[in-house]
Each structure stands twice: as C-alpha cells, then as structure tokens.
Design a protein around this nucleic acid. Structure first.
Length: 352
DNA sequence: CATCCGTGGGA
DNA sequence: TTCCCAAGGAT
C-alpha cells in the first residue's frame, strides 16, 4: 500500500476551502447531529436537507420528538424512504428522554446501543459532537480510500469492511476527528464522486493510486448483486359520500406502519374480474361498482418492484366491509403517512 | 451473514 | 431505458 503522511492535514485544508454550509454544521448539539445522521443514512444531502429543517423546527429538542406520536413522525418522514429510520428515531427519542433524562449519551458504548444507531452513526456523533477519536466509514470513505490507496478488496465483504475500518482509524486526525471525518465524506460527495470525479483539481492527484493506474472507474470494488422481487398491488379506492377507507400496514414488510388504500396483492397482473377470488373486499357486486381502473404503474424499491394500480369503487353502503378498515373523511386523508404510490394517487385525486 | 428496507438523481 | 448508488442498520 502506498502510505503517506499528512492525509488528514491535506483533506482538512481542502474541507475548509470547499465545504458546503449546512445547518447541522452550525451546531454541536448532539440531538441535532444525531437527527442529521439518521436522515442522511443512504440519502443524499439534496434529498434530506428539507426533512432535517422540518424535523428541527417541529421538534427542537429530543423531548419534543419523544412527545410526538409515531403517526405524526412518520407523516413528517413521508417520502424519504427507509421508514424504519423514522420509527427507530422516535423510539430512541423516547429512550433518551426516559433513561437519560433528555441528555444525549456521551459514551460511545451507550450511543451505539441506541436503536437505529450503528457503527457509522455512533462514530459520527461521538466525533462531531464530542470530538472523540472514532473514525467513520461510509460509502464516501470506501470510495476515497480505495482510490487513493488502491485497495480492491470488495467493500461489501467482511474482509473489506475490516480493512477499510482499520485504515480509516490509522488515518484519523485524533486532534480534530469531527472535521477530519466530515472532510473525508465531503470530499467523496463533491470531489471524488462515483462518476466523473474532479481529478484535475484534486489535492491527491500526484499520489492517488487509482488516478496513476487508470483505475478510477474500477474502484471501489463491489461484489454483491441484489435480486429483485416483483409484486402486484391492486389498491381499492372506495368512495362513499364524504368517506373513503384506509388500512395500516402493520406487518413486517415494506412501508411498515404507513397507511394505504385497501389492497389486494396478486402474483401477477390479474384480471379485475378475478380479484374477488383473492379477497373479501367488495369490488363489483351488490354493494360496489367499479367506476375507474388506472393503468399499471411501477414503484422501484431497493429489493422489490411494485407494480400497482388503483381500482375506484363507488360504494353503496359500508355494511360488508372488513372491520379493520379505517373510515376517513376525504378531506382529512392528507394527515396520514402514505407510501409514494398512494401519495401520487392522492395528489391526482385532489381531495380537500 | 446474506438479505431486506425507499426514493430520486445522474450518466 | 437502464443502471448505479447515496453521511447504513436490523435481523
């Protein structure tokens, strides 16, 4: 490995010059640092920034977040994805309020026990908020270190994770771990990008292994390939005077604890006429008439492709509906947290 | 430990 | 269109 002195100084100097000014960089409040880190897990800053501002304004302290309902927190999180982050965020706010008296824990060993906080997030909070010497390893760190030092161990292997973690710890500027960590990540985010990195203006251009070996496009190395599962969702949009009906997705599945229109899932793009065989939900009989069936659309998730459509049913009464349906006044429906396909249909329906 | 969990932007 | 992947964590 081509190892050299001064990595921390060089990258922190770059950081001072080029870093973006972001709200969580204006504070050392561990609550806000934690909030920003949860929001930014697997999420670009451009996508998460508005959510951070919204959460920080609605819940300025951990106690305020803890006092909210999960439904309210999920509604504020709606559209950001990976909803377990929101559920764990709320759960942990209650934990901190109850077990730590509202004071965010300072020991790494306590921080990493918090639900939704893993090695990366614990190191980020400890270093950024408390200046403790823990090195972060995220997607940016993998990319920057693999290129500069020419490491082709797959980043999604156990061996790779261990090697990059060790290197990140070796390189860490223990006098300024928070800025050092953020510098490496920011460098990966806006300079050493996955595609078309700005090597011409790179402070490491004279010693970067990948640049000299023409390996920029090859690094970092990943081995994993995800297999995609296809599912078919037939949503039933019931219409009964001022009301429609929702269900809550409580099972261990995608979009857990979000709300949706009553759903008939099928193994393929089934005919509308056959749907009554799959469910007790009224569709087209003495108590309901189909008024519209939308085209199939597709929602892409990380491991699933959801093919979905909406079947509008004019209901004559609500007597034969399953008891788990939640009757909702149409003008109140925007209070519920819903997944993206349902949100799109609500915007199309324009109920309010 | 391999798999699952969202959404959106860029090439 | 298709593919990659982004301040990861839980199970």
């Amino acid at each position: 490995m081509v190892y050299f002195e001064g990595f921390g100084q060089i990258i922190q100097q770059w950081y001072k010059q080029f870093k973006r000014h972001l709200p969580w960089r204006e504070t050392s409040d561990p609550y806000l640092i934690w909030l920003s880190e949860i929001i930014l897990q697997q999420t670009r800053i451009d996508q998460g920034l508005a959510y951070f501002n919204r959460f920080a304004e609605n819940y300025p302290t951990v106690e305020k977040l803890a006092a909210a309902s999960e439904d309210e927190v999920l509604k504020l999180w709606q559209g950001l994805g990976y909803y377990s982050r929101a559920r764990n965020l709320h759960f942990t706010a209650k934990t901190i309020t109850r077990e730590f008296g509202g004071q965010f824990p300072k020991q790494y060993s306590d921080i990493i026990k918090l639900k939704g906080v893993g090695e990366y997030t614990a190191a980020a909070i400890a270093s950024i908020s408390y200046k403790q010497p823990y090195a972060v390893v995220d997607g940016n760190v993998y990319r920057v270190l693999s290129r500069i030092f020419g490491i082709d161990t797959p980043i999604d292997s156990t061996e790779g994770k261990k090697a990059f973690k060790q290197l990140a710890e070796d390189l860490l500027d223990r006098n300024n771990p928070g800025d050092h960590n953020q510098a490496v990540m920011e460098f990966g985010a806006i300079q050493c990008t996955p595609k078309n990195p700005n090597c011409a203006a790179c402070p490491f251009c004279d010693r970067c292994f990948a640049l000299q070996g023409k390996a920029i496009e090859r690094l970092p190395v990943k081995q994993g390939k995800v297999k995609i599962r296809h599912r078919y969702f037939n949503y039933l949009v019931y219409d009964l005077e001022e009301s429609t009906f929702l269900t809550k997705r409580t099972s261990n599945d995608i979009w857990k604890n979000l709300y949706q229109f009553p759903l008939i899932e099928t193994a393929y793009k089934a005919e509308v006429e056959s749907l009554h065989l799959e469910s007790e939900l009224p569709i087209n009989n003495s108590i309901g008439d189909i008024s519209e069936v939308t085209d199939w659309k597709k929602q892409v998730l990380s491991h699933q492709h959801i093919h979905y459509r909406f079947i509008h049913v004019q209901l004559k009464n609500k007597k034969n509906l399953p008891t788990d349906l939640i009757e909702v006044n149409k003008k109140d429906i925007f209070n519920f947290a819903v997944p993206k396909p349902v949100e799109k249909q609500l915007n199309y329906l324009n109920w309010f």
